[in-house]
Design a protein around this nucleic acid. Structure first.
Lengths: 226, 226
DNA sequence: CCATCTGTCTACCAGATGGTAGAGAGTGCG
DNA sequence: CGCACTCTCTACCATCTGGTAGACAGATGG
């Protein structure tokens, strides 16, 4: 009884379509009916897999969180090595650019259910912010990071910059001059530059790069696609 | 029939409550009934003032835009002067901090109606971005601004940083360590610092030395709803 | 063969939704 | 006074909402 590899299980299809629709229209504006239709089943069949719309919402959110948590260990390893900033920024941006619906859905949850999301943030984000800002605070005392920076608030802003930025990128790009085909690239590149220059006194130099071996160039050239 | 000074007209009360509820729950999740109840009238009375829910949404958005446009001329003057980074940032942050519902509502519109909002951005934001980035581009060539900056994309990111940042500030603050009473101040201050350091080669040096740290936050804090 | 379990369906529910019809109430005005 | 105008109301509508009841089909397994 293993899962079919070709066609995802009905359950997963429901989660896929629910993610898409919740991200696009919001939870309140999306009907169970609409999700069922998108999957190609009837409403009661959907409600057989998820007892209620609320539970479906929870499952959708949980799945995104689970995917992020799969990525976390590797991220922490990357953060421990030399090229922290690039590694972390790359992981963050990749995760959300890979499927912008994740960003849109999370952003909507923040707007729709602030209290619930606060609890979630305290549990899933705050410890990570603490780790990162510890590192940053050290770098700040060493003079690599702007002296007047509030590194903790900075970390939170950067998270929002990435999540929110990806969520609205396509639309906000309309405020830009050039052709829309390159909007995403431009915005992403400038986003990373802004985050870096907002942090480091000398943005061209990473925290401990002057002491690093040549492992840095390997890492930098690894994931620059799209 | 002049405007009552004490009690705003029913029409304005409807717009107020609609703004509040749309911002808090989203358009799709807010019923006409709920808005009418918040105002203290019956549903058909509301629909007498606004023929449909859609038209009410338009009116709400339009009113926010109108208020912003009242502010624009002064802002452009400030931007035209030599180095009025603080002026522009202050105007932006003040406008949204004064009533965070504006930020939340705009953010929701971007998520809910991307195509419509693109048109709005092209009309209302893009010209302003063009003016600002012209100034920034000049400053870049003069060496005041980071050489590798994409000033246009930067401007768009900063707009999002402020609008989105204000919209989610209270919730995202949960990822922060300290007490929540100072969260807003901390986040606002760091937001401005991040924007400045992300732009200027030497963030400390501005033509007008703004060295007071509390002059801004005092202006910012005014209204508390709910 | 029968019993059970899983999953999908049709038919239905009570309540909410956006919106309408039309009856007044209050005011202003000739 | 009567007429018109503005505004709010009760009563109602068709449609949609999330959710339930229960029939039925196809496996599974004794």
């Amino acid at each position: 009884m293993p899962d079919g590899d070709k066609t995802p299980s009905v359950r997963d299809q429901i989660l896929d379509e629910a993610t898409r629709l919740f991200a696009a229209q919001g939870f309140g504006a999306t009907s169970v009916q609409a999700i069922a239709e998108a999957v190609g089943i009837r409403k009661p069949s959907l409600l057989y897999h998820f007892e209620s719309k609320e539970l479906l919402r929870d499952a959708v959110l949980e799945r995104i969180l689970a995917r992020w948590n799969e990525l976390l260990p590797g991220l922490l390893v990357a953060a421990a090595k030399e090229d922290r900033f690039d590694g972390v920024m790359n992981a963050l941006t990749s995760f959300f650019l890979e499927d912008p619906d994740r960003a849109r859905l999370l952003l909507r949850e923040v707007l729709d259910r602030p209290t619930e999301l606060r609890a979630m943030l305290v549990k899933h984000v705050r410890p990570w912010v603490a780790v990162v800002s510890d590192q940053l605070e050290r770098a700040r005392r060493d003079g690599f990071v702007h002296a007047d920076a509030d590194v903790e608030a900075y970390a939170v802003h950067v998270i929002h910059l990435v999540v929110g930025g990806v969520a609205v990128m396509e639309t906000m790009g309309a405020a830009l001059g050039g052709r829309s085909s390159v909007t995403r690239e431009r915005m992403t590149k400038e986003l990373v530059r802004l985050a870096r220059a907002g942090l480091f006194v000398d943005p061209r130099r990473t925290t401990r790069s002057e002491r690093s071996e040549s492992a840095r160039s390997e890492r930098a050239g690894s994931k620059r696609n799209k």
